[in-house]
């Protein structure tokens, strides 16, 4: 479902959202605030999401645990 390509696909989606936000931002005296906020939000959220995905793309450690209940195992 999700692999390395997701980063690119996500980027494309984010770019579309950013462009749409830039164009569709409410006109008026607060236009600059709207545009800057939308673009920065898209950028920040994309970076955060992409980095989280990248960190798990080729994990070097695996989770381990020993406090399983019997019901869970069966």
């Amino acid at each position: 479902m999700a692999n390395g390509w997701s980063i690119i696909i996500g980027l494309v989606i984010c770019l579309i959202v950013a462009v749409a936000g830039y164009v569709l931002a409410p006109k008026g005296e607060n236009l600059t605030v709207w545009r800057s906020s939308i673009l920065l939000t898209v950028a920040c959220t994309y970076i955060m999401w992409a980095l989280t995905l990248l960190a798990q793309l080729n994990p070097l450690v695996q989770p381990n645990a020993s406090d399983f209940r019997k019901q869970y195992i069966e």
Partner: peptide, 18 residues
Amino acid sequence: PATKLVAERIPGYTYPFG
């Protein structure tokens, strides 16, 4: 009970959000 288990990666799949 209390045996340490290490998880295996499901090949080709990465957790998509978070």
